[in-house]
Nucleic acid binder design. Structure first.
Lengths: 142, 142
DNA sequence: GCTAATGATTGTGCCGATACAAGCTTCCTG
DNA sequence: CAGGAAGCTTGTATCGGCACAATCATTAGC
């Protein structure tokens, strides 16, 4: 029973994010950047990180992370800075322009489906709260 | 205020589906099929459809839908049948093997993150109910 | 100080994702 | 029936995604 609710809820969430309201293409068109690059940009705009960390966050291998950052850097959206304390690392962070671009992306990707805004106040609060629990969940165990 | 909750809830949902619990790769590996192909397979397994409809559902152009179906057919997962009533159309449906493969995919993709199952009964019910409203929402308007 | 781990980069290469153009069959409408 | 619309297929071509292997720079452990 609750088994079913869990699966059903999950499938619904997936459907919403992946099918009914997937605006990734839109964001990609708006910025002229591919999905991964946008994800990388948004990530470093929020928390500057080393190439390795970024690679992990994007779930790609390190060499590819380098390529992605190269591209972003070529466009002046991010910069590489030496890591204080470990000269092997480079810390990637967003430039001014990068922050702006990231904001544009977030505006597009963060815009919820109309139905969400149309929700009764109470439902919205509930939804938000429960999702908050879920994203926090130390389910680092994959 | 509720503005923020809507955006936040949406971002959380996205994060959950796209980052924290994205098992698409896993499904792809398990079946030896790419994302789009799996999506196509699951779709026709549930509701047989014409190539055009499928193309729309996948958000790809028709020629590509043909390619995707070709591949699935070559593997014996789907079959093309003449559309009764319109001989221009082919109706694509899953074979026995296709149904099984689709079930495997669904088992992987439908498995919710552990946190969902760990939710208090009441929260889970709420979540499910609210998401039900959202997916139903005639937000066909993109 | 030497050797092994860690991090970044470069070079190579393959495959999936698609779009676009063109052609064929079938259907519909005048 | 003629002409055009609708649906499928084939052919062509480009591009992004991304892994792998090898290389160089640093750091860390013995």
């Amino acid at each position: 029973m609750s088994e079913d609710a869990a699966v059903r809820a999950w499938l619904r969430m997936r459907s919403l994010v992946l099918d009914r309201h997937d605006r990734r293409r839109e964001a990609a068109d708006a910025l002229g950047l591919s999905f991964v690059r946008i994800k990388a940009l948004r990530r470093v705009a929020e928390t500057p990180s080393t190439l390795s960390d970024l690679a992990d966050a994007l779930a790609v291998d390190r060499p590819y992370a380098t390529v992605v950052v190269d591209e972003l850097q070529k466009r002046g959206l991010v910069r590489r800075e030496p890591h204080p304390g470990d000269r092997r690392c480079k810390v990637v962070s967003a430039t001014e322009a990068g922050q702006e671009a990231a904001a544009v992306a977030s505006a597009i990707l963060g815009e919820p489906p109309p139905g969400v805004r149309a929700l009764p106040e109470a439902d919205l609060a509930e939804l938000d709260r429960i999702l908050g629990v879920l994203v926090q969940d130390p389910e680092r165990a994959r």
